[in-house]
Structure formats: structure tokens, C-alpha cells
Design a protein around this nucleic acid. Structure first.
Length: 465
RNA sequence: GUCCCGUUCGUCUAGAGGCCUAGGACACCAGCCUUUCACGUUGGUAACACGGGUUCGAAUCCCGUACGGGACGCCA
């Protein structure tokens, strides 16, 4: 049997890290087993679903690299099928029409709570004769759920979970306006799409009992279920639109690489011994649902940032240069031409060693695109003492005659320091200030080389004047 | 309130009855490296929620308590 998983977000909000991780686990499991990964947009709530939200979800998945197989299914296009199944259930005597009004149900609920009972539908239309139906009221269709026994879910993550059927009431599967409820639509769609493994957040665990009852009423085989723990906010509560949820696209804004985000998300709840650095390819090879643990996790930006630094260090220089250029594009204080691009690319191997996000990378690279006179940070200005300026004026002729390769520059600087009886730092630090306007940069030899002889001499002259 | 699920360093986690004096990672602290900053590296602080069982032996199995979370809608 080919494994087929799906990610089924509802487009009523953004794709946050919890949803992204659910998508990731579904993706990894399907790839690991050589199966398929489908996407279904659960847009049956026409009131709250928006095209914009759908776009954001699609864009988020695309950014993370979680490509799905086949056509995207929009649940709203399948309502006729959902109604068809509901009517089949009705004809088979596994469902019935309920003529309760909203007020009636509300009252029922309130009374139950007031009496300390669980707020459940009392089944008043379950066995009532259809002839008693009131005039002019369009009924909802409820599942005639079993009242005895228990419903059991064999969950791949949570283990065997069971509930007494007496705890469950007869849920509505088709609303009085003929539209399906979520619980019903999900079952019909998962069945029709041939989903073999339902991997989702464990906030759906208790809903699963009701879904299983629909499968059973239809005589359908149930898929395997895997309810993965939620990611909680810093306060330990569930993430939601109005509570600490951050769109995955904001991670992109903040300079995180998608592969780092995936790796981080993977390690939130899944582990393979002491493995921490798990690139996608490796994740596909190793991932299995049984290695997902049961407790909820919290988001830790520090660890994500660290992981991101690791991915940046091994990322391709050209790719990072493009990212940096893109981020710098709006800066009016820079001159972003081919020359600057060349310098950034040249220095990228050294730049990426010291950055943990693309934002930091762009900040660190910006000096390469400046034109004299450079702005100086206070510490850099302080490093350019009268004495340091004198030293720089001495140094300039030596540099003018040096080959601008990293090795030659390093040798020249060491020779100059020795000849003038200075420590290397006493030469390098003022030079760094003159070249970059800052006290922090990659190695001074590499910085010099990336700038090129002409620009370096111009900056030294300007700073030592 | 009822039902369901969970609980190992601050955080993410390893751990399937003896390998645990509880391991790793991030963060934090100290040292080394050094041309600044990073990287790297060495060391350190730091956890089995609590109480009962079962067992020669429990972080691991069972029961209870506490705490946390989730679900109880003609939302998804």
C-alpha cells in the first residue's frame, strides 16, 4: 500500500510554525516511505476563509520547500459530495434529521453546564417520527452515533486512546443549509483522496473519535492516525492567530534560511539519538512517526538562530550574495552596482562565518557598497587617533606596491608591523576603521582584498586626512 | 464542569528495568585560539513534578495526586 499523507490547513489565518511543522512531518513521512503528499485547503468556512490567506499558506509551503503532489484540493468544491454521503447515511439509518433551533440547543447547553453535566446534545430527534417535524424548519443531519461500548483510536504517536461512547453525542454532519460540518467533510475527503496516514496536531485527537464513528457508519476503513504535539508559545499556551503565532514568512523577513527553519522544526518533537544538524535529505532518510514524542514543545529563537548560522556557513556564496543584495536594495546610502556585488561575493566566504542571519550578513556587507566619505561608528572614529592616521599614511605606500591577494596582504601587514615595531593589532584595528567605518569586520587581509587596491587606498587617504 | 493527552537541566531532547555518578544541543559562565568580531576548542553551572506500589534493582512498569495542555459549536 502506497502511503499518502496530506496537509489540510484552513485559510482563515497565517501559516504559523505549528502548521508548518505539521506540513513538514507529513511531507517527510511521505517522502521517507516513497509515498505521496497532498494538499487540501479547508475553506468550507466561507465567512472567514480568504484568498489572501490561501496565498500566504501556499507561499509559506513553497518557501520551506515542501512541495506537494497532484492538484491542490479545495474543500469548498466538494460540498455536493459531502451532502451525498450525509444522505447515504440518512437512508442507511445511520443518521437522522434534527429540527432543533439554535436557541433550543443553546438552552440545552446552558442547562447542562448549570447542572454540572457535560454540554451534549440529548438526542431528542434521534428516534422521533419524521411526521412530527415542525413546518418550515429545515433540519440539520446528525450522525446516529453508537450509545454503548467505546470508540478506540490506535494512534501512532499517542498510543491506544479510547473513550466511552456515552461521552460522545450525535454530531451534526450536514447543517440545515445543506453545507457539511468540518468533521464530516474531513472524513469524506480523506477517504475519497485515499489518505492512508492522517498526521495532524493533537488538538484534533478528541475529534478523531467522532470521525472514526463516521468511517464506521459508512463502512470505510480508517486511515492510520498520528497526533503530533502542539508547539506552544512562550507562556505554554496553544499558538493561534491572536496568540504568539508568527507567520513562517516572517522568519524569512528576519533572515532565517528555510532549511534551518525546517531543521529546527523537525527537532521540535522528533529526535534521532543526539543528532541535531539534520539537512532535508538526511531527514527524509531518517524520519519516522514513531520517533515523534508526545509532549508539547516551546519555540526557542536562540537555538533556531544558532542552527541558522550553521546553515549560512555552508550555504552557497552566490545565493547568499543575492539575498544580501536584495535586502540592501532599499538603502539609499549605498552604491549597489556590479562593483559592490563583486566585492560582496569576494568577501562572502569570510562574511558568512560571522553571521547568524541574513539580516546580520547584509549589515556586515553594507560597508562594501559605500562611497567615501564613510560614516564612522563612534568606536571606529575613536580608533583613528592622530597617531593612527600617521601610521596609515605610512602604510599606504607599502600597500600600493603589494599584490592584493589575501596571502600577500597578510605578509605585507606583518612586515609593516614588525618594521615599525607595532603589534599587528595596532595596525589592523585603525586600518579596519578606515576601511569599514566599523571596528568589526572579517579578517583585515580579506577585507582589503575584497575592496581592491584603488578603493582601499581611497578609503585610507580619506580616513587619515 | 466532563472527557482526552502530557510532565527529564532555563529551552529542545537522549533514555524501551541494571550500560545513569542521567548523555547531547542551545543559552549562560570561565579558559584557550586570535588581527576586531565570529567560528572553533576545553572546562563548568544546571533536570528525572510529587507520593505510593511492583522488583534483588525504576527516569524507565502500575496506581494516585499536583501542575500544564487540548477537546467539548449548525468554527476549522
Amino acid at each position: 500500500m502506497t502511503v499518502r499523507t496530506r496537509f489540510a490547513p484552513s485559510p482563515t489565518g497565517l501559516l504559523h510554525i505549528g502548521g508548518a511543522r505539521t506540513a513538514l512531518f507529513n511531507y517527510l513521512y511521505s517522502r521517507h516511505t516513497g509515498g505521496e503528499f497532498l494538499l487540501r485547503i479547508e475553506d468550507t468556512d466561507r465567512e472567514r476563509s480568504t484568498d489572501a490567506a490561501t496565498q500566504v499558506i501556499l507561499e509559506g509551503l513553497d518557501w520551506l520547500g515542501l512541495k506537494h503532489d497532484g492538484q491542490t484540493v479545495f474543500q469548498s468544491t466538494r460540498s455536493a459530495r459531502h451532502a451525498e454521503v450525509a444522505h447515504q447515511l440518512l437512508e442507511a439509518g445511520r443518521a437522522y434529521r434534527c429540527y432543533c433551533t439554535a436557541d433550543e440547543l443553546k438552552q440545552m447547553r446552558e442547562q447542562a453546564i448549570a447542572e454540572g453535566r457535560s454540554p451534549r446534545y440529548d438526542g431528542r430527534w434521534r428516534d422521533r417520527d419524521p411526521s412530527e417535524a415542525p413546518e418550515g424548519v429545515s433540519p440539520a443531519i446528525r450522525l446516529k452515533a453508537p450509545r454503548e461500548g467505546e470508540t478506540v483510536v490506535e494512534d501512532l504517536v499517542q498510543g491506544t486512546v479510547r473513550v466511552a461512547n456515552g461521552e460522545l453525542d450525535d454530531m451534526i454532519i450536514l447543517r440545515s443549509d445543506g453545507t457539511p460540518t468540518y468533521l464530516h467533510a474531513v472524513v469524506v475527503d480523506d477517504h475519497d483522496m485515499g489518505i492512508t496516514h492522517v498526521i495532524r496536531g493533537d488538538d484534533h485527537l478528541t475529534n478523531t473519535f467522532r470521525q472514526v464513528q463516521i468511517y464506521q457508519a459508512m463502512g470505510w476503513e480508517t486511515p492510520a492516525f498520528a497526533h503530533i504535539p502542539l508547539i506552544h508559545g512562550a507562556d505554554g499556551a496553544k499558538l493561534s492567530k491572536r496568540h504568539g503565532a508568527v507567520s513562517v514568512l516572517e522568519f524569512r523577513e528576519q533572515g532565517f534560511l528555510p532549511e534551518a527553519v525546517c531543521n529546527y522544526l523537525l527537532r521540535l518533537g522528533w529526535s534521532h539519538g543526539d543528532l541535531e544538524f539534520v539537512p532535508m535529505e538526511e531527514a527524509v532518510r531518517l524520519f519516522d512517526i514513531v520517533d515523534v514524542n508526545r509532549g508539547a514543545a516551546r519555540m526557542d529563537y536562540a537555538k533556531l538562530t544558532h542552527l541558522n548560522g550553521m546553515y549560512i556557513r555552508q550555504a552557497d556564496d552566490e545565493r547568499l550574495t543575492r539575498e544580501v543584495l536584495q535586502r540592501l536594495a532599499h538603502r539609499h546610502d549605498l552604491s549597489l552596482g556590479a562593483i559592490a556585488a563583486g566585492r560582496i561575493l569576494a568577501l562572502m566566504p569570510a562574511l558568512k562565518e560571522r553571521a547568524k542571519t541574513v539580516v546580520e550578513l547584509a549589515d556586515a556587507a553594507a560597508f562594501l557598497a559605500r562611497v567615501v566619505p564613510l560614516p564612522f561608528e563612534p568606536k571606529a572614529a575613536a580608533a583613528l587617533t592622530p597617531e593612527a592616521k600617521l601610521m596609515l599614511r605610512d602604510l599606504a605606500p607599502a600597500l600600493a606596491q603589494t599584490d592584493f591577494s589575501v596571502a600577500a596582504l597578510d605578509a605585507a601587514l606583518r612586515a609593516f608591523a614588525e618594521a615599525t615595531e607595532r603589534k599587528l593589532g595596532q595596525v589592523a584595528q585603525p586600518l579596519r576603521a578606515a576601511l569599514t567605518g566599523s571596528t568589526v569586520s572579517p579578517g583585515i587581509d580579506a577585507t582589503l582584498a575584497a575592496l581592491g587596491r584603488d578603493e582601499a587606498l581611497v578609503r585610507i587617504a580619506a580616513a587619515s586626512a
